[in-house]
């Protein structure tokens, strides 16, 4: 039983090299377990003080849509947790424009602040990472 210290006692010298991590989210929230699993990995890995970005594309866009109420399907609504990411110093959230538009959604429909980018910008973002985790 250990409790992560979340890097609070580490300084720049001892914490090692900071890598760029991108979490790619492509699945709708409740039909499969991918979205929740991704979120949990993101929260756990936040302890390692890396340069983290989250990308939402394809059906992954649905994860961060406002107004989710899961009481009647008896499943935990984990959408409020995306709003906690800021407290974990995870502030780079990207949404792919084409995916958003294909679903009839706009930037106002999301429960967190995101940067909307085109598919080609998304490709560049992916290419610029050290580690890409896809869910």
């Amino acid at each position: 039983m250990t409790e992560s210290t979340g890097g609070i006692d580490m300084d720049e010298e001892t914490s090692g090299v900071v890598k760029k991590f991108l979490y790619v989210n492509r699945k709708a929230p409740y039909g499969t377990i991918y979205a929740l699993e991704s979120l949990e990995v993101v929260l756990i890995a936040a302890a390692f003080d890396q340069d983290v970005s989250l990308a939402f594309l394809d059906d992954g866009i649905y994860q961060i849509v406002k107004g989710q109420h899961t009481k009647n399907i008896d499943v935990k609504n984990f959408s409020p947790t995306y709003r906690a990411l800021e407290g974990y110093d995870i502030e780079k959230l990207y949404v792919e424009k084409e995916s958003m538009e294909a679903r009839g959604l706009t930037e106002d429909d999301f429960l967190v602040d995101v940067k909307v980018m085109t598919k080609s910008e998304m490709a560049d973002l992916m290419a610029s990472q050290d580690v890409v985790m896809s869910f």
């Binding site: 709708a28 649905y62 849509v65 989710q68 899961t70 009481k71």
Partner: peptide, 13 residues
């Protein structure tokens, strides 16, 4: 199914 729409924040769409 309405409960599935509500869960996904899609009721009004």
């Amino acid at each position: 199914l309405q409960p599935d729409l509500e869960a996904r924040g899609m009721s009004g769409r």
